[in-house]
């Protein structure tokens, strides 16, 4: 056993651990910080991404003993206490943006996506779509097809730059282009079709 001391989401931790214990398992199994997930065993998926002294790392690829003396930040420490009755008011702009842009479905990759995105925006506050796509290359999502994740990161970037971001699309009806309801028979007749 080896003694480690570190700060995790602002709290001091002091534990005896096996030298081989992965940081992600220390977070999850020893500290009970289950907000950080494990999605693979080959460092490909990025679900376990946390910050180690401000840089994003895949915590499945870091030994707990390597984090000795470090400051670790996880998804669980990202939100501030609500400033008003609205629970979302304390959320980080990335958390708000993923919600507004539907940047998550099952949500399993989301903690890693958000922690990686935060690192990305720290290095490049005004990324292009391409910058975001390449910056998140190490984080896999199987649900969203990434379109709304990219939108989420760009939205959060704008807010972090102090720009006014529009309201979420809530209430938008996303109306279909052609409504072929039998009640609107005339539309069916007027359609231009194949060449």
């Amino acid at each position: 056993m080896t003694r480690v001391q570190m700060t995790v989401d602002g709290q001091a931790c002091d534990d005896d651990v096996e030298p081989r214990l992965l940081l992600v398992h220390y977070l999850r199994d020893v500290l009970g910080k289950t907000g950080t997930n494990v999605g693979c065993d080959t460092s490909n998926c990025g679900a376990c991404t946390v910050h180690l002294d401000g840089d994003s790392v895949k915590s499945c690829t870091v030994l707990t003993v390597q984090a000795d003396g470090a400051e670790v930040a996880t998804i669980e420490g990202l939100a501030q206490p609500p400033t008003d009755g609205d629970a979302t008011s304390g959320w980080h702009p990335l958390q708000k943006a993923f919600h507004a842009e539907h940047g998550l479905q099952c949500g399993y990759c989301t903690p890693g996506m958000i922690m990686s995105s935060m690192d990305l925006l720290g290095r490049n506050p005004s990324p292009s779509e391409e910058d975001v796509r390449h910056g998140l290359e190490g984080n896999l999502c199987r649900c969203t097809g990434y379109v709304n994740i990219v939108r989420s990161v760009l939205r959060a970037a704008a807010e972090l730059r102090g720009e006014t971001v529009g309201d979420a699309d809530e209430g938008g009806i996303g109306e279909a282009d052609v409504v072929s309801d039998p009640e609107h028979e005339e539309q069916l007749e007027n359609l231009e079709v194949a060449p």
Binding site: E76, W91, H102, L104, G107, G174
Partner: peptide
């Protein structure tokens, strides 16, 4: 027929999950 932001998201974006 209108977009409502998901009720599911709050615990998922803050790491308060139940996997």
């Amino acid at each position: 027929g209108v977009t409502k932001l998901r009720k599911e998201d709050a615990h998922l974006v803050t790491g308060r999950t139940r996997w």
